[in-house]
Structures are given as C-alpha cells and as structure tokens.
Design a protein around this nucleic acid. Structure first.
Lengths: 334, 334
DNA sequence: TTGTAAGCGTTATCAA
DNA sequence: TTGATAACGCTTACAA
C-alpha cells in the first residue's frame, strides 16, 4: 500500500508537501503548478489511499462504532436484518467501521458494554430489545465521552437520543384503512398497549363504538406476537359467536395464523373478513392471501441512527425523532 | 482514555516497561514484583485499554474486515441474522472491526468490491447469494494481498477457501428419518439438485424404489423455495391421485404451505402425512404443527469463516471445509 | 514556495 | 532488571 512517503520519495519532495497537495490544504500560499501535478499524478499511479488508522490515531478518534443488538421481532420478520442493512449503509457513507455485538442476556449486555471503553470505538448504537437496567452503565459511558444513540420505538432515557417510531400510528393506519374498506366489526389482538390505543383512536375518530369483545386479550411481551396464541384467541372469539368482518392484527404472524384459521373454516378473505398485519414481513407477499401490513421503517431508522451518531461524534447537537409507519396495501384487505 | 504513557508517568517507570508488563512479554528475565504489581494496579485504576489504531498502524494492518452479504433465504428464515451473529462473535474474539456490505445487485457488488482496493480492510468474507461473475475481480483483489474467505454451500473457486455445508445430507437426513418413522411414499419438491440427490440416496440405501411421480418439479432458484409454488405442486399431485404419506420439503416455507394445504383438506399431520423442512426457521416452533427441520449451522459457519480469515491474515494456511447439517425433530414427523 | 520536526500510542530491538 | 530509541503513516505549526 503506497504511503505519502513513497510519493514524496519518487517525486523528490517532502512528505508534508505531498500531504498538503493531496488534501488541498495549501492555504493562500500555494505550490508550483508542475509539482502539484507531479504529486497528483504519482499518487494516482501508485494507487495511493489514506491510512485510516494513522488518521484516527492523530485525530484521537477510532473511526469505528459499535452496534448493540438484542435480536427481536415476531419470528420470521426481518427487523434485525433491515436495521443492520440501514446502519451498514450509513456507516459505509461515513467511512465508519462497525463492531457488531449481538447480545442475548443482561449479563452479556453489561459485560460487552464494559469492553467498550476500550478506546476501540467512538460511539454506540443500541438496538433491538432494550435493557432498562443498563441505563446507569450507559450514562457512565456517555460521561466518559462515548457517544450514544438508540433505535427503540420509544426513547430509553432523555439523555440518549433515539430514532423511534410513532407506534400508535401502526394500528391507527390499518384500522382506519379497514374502516374505509367498509368493515363494521374490527377486532384486534391486544398485545401492545400503544398499538391497541391506535386501534381505539381510529375507531373513535370515525365515530364508531369500541366493542371490548373485539379486543382479544393476549400476553404482553414477545409471546403475545406468536401466531399460535393469536389463533387460540380468535377461535375462542368465533366460538363465542362474535361477529367479525375485519382484523387489525398487531403482528404479521398473528395475521397469517388468523388467515389460515379462517380459510380452514371456509371463510373467504378478503371477501368475508379483511385482515392487516404489522411488520411488512417478507412472507406478506407469499402467504395464502397476500397480507396488507405496516412498514416500520427499520432500514431507514438504522440509517438515521448512524447518521445521528456521526453528527454527535462531530460535536454537533442532535435530537430524538420519531418516524411515521407506512401502510402497505395487499390483497387481504381490499 | 488512559495511555501507556499515563501509567508510566504515574508509576514512575518507562513506557516500554509498562508495555511489557501489560502484555506479559517480560521474557525470561522478568521485572521486580512490586513494579509489576504497581503497573497492573495503575492500569486497572485508570481503566487502561489498548488503542487498536496504533497497534494496527504498527502491525501494518487495518484490524478490520469486510463482510459481503447478499441477503438470501427462504423468506422468513434467519439465515442472514444467524450468519452475522456467528461472524460478530468471532470478530469480537479477534478484536476485528467489521464493515458490513449488504449488496443486492451485481452492479452494486462490483462497485463495493472496488472500495476494497482502498486498503481499508485486511480481509473479506463473502456470504449469501454468490456472484460467479465477480470471481475475476475477487482474484485480482486477492493478488493485491487481500485475504478472502466465503461461506457458500459450495466453494465458488478453488483459490477462495470456503466454509460450506454438505448439502446432500440435508434431505438425506430427513428422508432417512421419514423412512424410519414408517413412511412408504415420500415426496419432495425438486428445487435444488444436491438436495434431490440426497433424497434419492436415502431411498436407495433403504432399498426403496424411487417413484418419479413423487418428485415434484419446481423452478430451480429462489422462486422454487416459495410456499405458494410448493402448494401448487402439491395440489397438482394430490389431484392426479398420487398416494403420499411423507413429504421431504426442501425449505421450511414449502413445508408450512404443504401442512396448511393438507390440514385444510382434512388430512392429519403427522397422523396421515409426516413432513420435514429445511432451514430450522423460527416459525418451525410456532406454525400449525411444529415442524421437523434441518439446521444448516449458519451461526457456526459464520464463526468459522471469520476464524479462518483471521488465520489467513496471520499468514497461516487454511483449507475449505464442509459442515454436516443436523436434524431437529418436532411434532410434524413423529 | 517548500521543508523540518513533533506528536498521536504502541511495540520491538538493543543498550545500559 | 529497566530504559532509550526507532518505527508505523499522517497532519500541522513553524522555520527556511
């Protein structure tokens, strides 16, 4: 790998002059035209590339960030992949190297956080499942100069800037859509309070009564997103004789299981019942009836989180933000 | 961030002694016990961590690798995530920083490969969908000194060491399992030649005839793994009156769609028909009938690939290897 | 207009 | 048993 010294030697000038020419830092004074050209030509010829380590060393920066990722998601969704893809894109743009930390347990989490002072990274993005207990440790790291950004739905702490999502709008959008499609009795699986609120708000705004029998109780937490749990709840409701012509599921898996259960009972979708999910999983395209769903913007949020971190590292101020989810309409609801 | 110099100043010794003590490189000679202890205590107290950039600078290395990842997989499987998790673990172990490159198209791929000429990384792991057309460019990079490792099922080129999988054994294992469970007429979706071969071999070894009507034609390539395509093939076979009491699907998605189709026709699973998939996707646990599947060892392969790359970077010789897939038995087949 | 020298944090070699 | 020095590649203040 050619260095500035190689160029300097070959052209017969000093290293510092080469550095200035290459970086266009000659200031007001300038240098002889033929030298500038010779230097640039030689750099090109030798395929000169800057050495990131020496620059980082000099700048007292690491040129690297760490991504903390506790894998999350309704099974089969590509939340982690999408988030990482966005982060990778932004990191590439900013010439940042990433250390990926997949963590699964709290002990792990703290252990890995400790490793961070290493002077091996300039900043950290927190993503996936969040560990509220880790906040004190995070704030300690922040005090030591490490930059922190998170990509949870909601901020974990006011001092840690977050790239979030307007959770309530996920179900708000899909319920509104189902109402517009003519549904009269829309059910939901009550898995996440913010999402159930969105469902209620859409009904209220449309002047519809909220029928509590259509809000199926589910375990709050990961398990509540499982398809089998949702199918159980749906079967219970159907057998108790509740009328349903729309389902605003709170995950795609819930929706798919509902679709399959209904189809097996001879119910037509979207003819008799219209259904929407959340996650916009890949299988929305390929399942029995292509599923209308909600895009939670994971790739974009990953990108923005790293952009935000880069800004922090540059000393610029940043502020938490929340993206709007987006409705993706497919056959299951029209 | 505390440096060796900080420790040296505080303890009142030279930087080089501190370096030797910290790195346990005193050799045969040794140093005074109390000094060793004082240095170690001070390092602890100041929270000393090595600066990776200066080490890399000295070693004429980047201390970073690049991961090229073309996302792959039957939709809903966690192939990419699992692979990345394994790679991240190994990278962490070796103190390597990763640049993640998610690529989707060939042009992208080549474009990103060009970036590698920058000497930003010491090595590259290639993963996911492979681009045979990129081989010449890869070999060029290799000639420039960049270390290359891949994690495709089969090696892409003899000069590029690979952490692969004995593909044939995926279906071999599951077909053998179905035979042992008493299945007489086992079908498969002919999506990937190596997998169909494994299916044939298992039947032949058991002295069973291969019934070509039970080998359902599928498009070769990603589309062949889709569930809807598989369901179509299955329906066609059923309606032509073929007897089936076992299905060795070539992806989990195929299997799930087959299960749902059969259930909707009143067929009992695993009572009337036993089914196996491939990928060991998360939804194997949660789908209508928990699905027996094949673990393709993606996390382990990711880990091994980075281990291999580290070895190459150390100048050690490495050789391609193939891992054995593993059968994970669940209710759908017993 | 160009060059010298110091310094970023570390390690290896050689000297004391 | 300990320390001085050079080197990795680069930038910048200052000197020529």
């Amino acid at each position: 790998m050619a260095s500035l010294k190689d160029i300097a030697d070959e052209v017969g000038v000093s290293v510092s002059l080469v550095s200035k020419v290459i970086n266009d830092k000659l200031g007001t004074t300038g240098a002889r035209k033929e030298l500038i050209e010779a230097i640039k030509a030689k750099a090109e010829e030798l395929g000169y590339k800057r050495n990131f380590n020496s620059i980082a060393l000099l700048a007292k920066r690491q040129g690297a960030i760490s991504v903390f990722l506790h894998r999350i998601g309704s099974k089969g969704a590509t939340i982690t992949e999408d988030t990482l893809e966005g982060m990778a894109e932004s990191a590439h743009k900013h010439n940042l190297r990433m250390m990926l930390n997949f963590v699964t347990e709290y002990d792990d989490y703290i252990q890995r956080l400790q490793d961070l002072h290493t002077g091996m990274v300039d900043g950290v993005v927190l993503s996936g499942v969040y560990h509220i207990e880790a906040v004190p440790e995070l704030l300690k790291l922040q005090k030591e100069g490490l930059k922190l950004v998170s990509t949870f739905s909601n901020p974990i702490h006011e001092k840690i800037p977050n790239v979030g999502l307007i959770e309530e709008n996920t179900t708000y959008l899909s319920t509104k859509h189902l109402i517009e499609q003519g549904c009269e009795s829309i059910a939901t699986f009550d898995t996440m309070p913010q999402r159930t609120n969105g469902y209620r708000r859409a009904l209220e705004e449309a002047g519809r009564p909220v029928n509590e029998r259509l809000i199926f109780g589910m375990p709050h937490g990961q398990e509540g997103f499982y398809g089998s749990t949702a199918r159980g709840a749906l079967i219970g409701a159907l057998e108790s004789g509740v009328e349903i012509d729309g389902i605003c599921a709170q995950s795609d898996t819930q929706a798919v299981y509902a679709i399959n259960e209904l189809l097996s009972r001879g119910v037509s979708i979207p003819g008799d019942v219209k259904i929407t999910g959340i996650d916009n999983s890949p299988f929305c395209e390929t399942c029995s009836v292509p599923l209308t769903s909600i895009d939670q913007k994971f790739a974009q949020r990953g990108r923005l989180a790293v952009d935000m971190l880069e800004k922090l590292m540059e000393g610029e101020p940043v502020e938490s933000l929340k993206l709007a989810p987006e409705l993706v309409v497919r056959k299951s609801s029209i």
